[in-house]
C-alpha cells in the first residue's frame, strides 16, 4: 500500500494525485489518499466508478482507500 498526503490540497488535486500514483502500485494493491478538501469524500468514490477501480471506503477521517483493479 502507498499513502498519498494531499492534506491542504483543493479539488481536484487529490484526485489528480490518485490518478497519477495508482500506476505505481500492482493490480490488487491499495492506495490510501489523505485529503481534507470537502469534495474528496464525494469525488474519490466517483473517480473509482468512472475509472473502474475499487473504492474500499474511508477507514479514518480524511482518509480514503482505493484498490487498483486495472
Amino acid at each position: 500500500m502507498i499513502e498519498l498526503d494531499c492534506l491542504g490540497q483543493k479539488c481536484p488535486l487529490p484526485v489528480i494525485q490518485l490518478a497519477k500514483n495508482i500506476r505505481n502500485v500492482e493490480v490488487g494493491d491499495v492506495v490510501r489518499v489523505l485529503a481534507d478538501d470537502p469534495a474528496a469524500a464525494n469525488d474519490i468514490p466517483a473517480w473509482c466508478r468512472m475509472k473502474q477501480q475499487e473504492y474500499l471506503g474511508s477507514p479514518a477521517p480524511d482518509a480514503y482507500e482505493v484498490r487498483r483493479l486495472s
Binding site: C11, P12, V15, P38, A39, N42, D43, P45, A46, W47, M50
Partner: peptide, 15 residues
C-alpha cells in the same frame, strides 16, 4: 467552498 449538495446526493463527480 463545499461541493454542490445536489451532486453529492447523487454521488456524481463534483469537480
Amino acid at each position: 467552498l463545499k461541493p454542490s449538495h445536489v451532486l453529492e446526493a447523487m454521488g456524481v463527480l463534483s469537480h
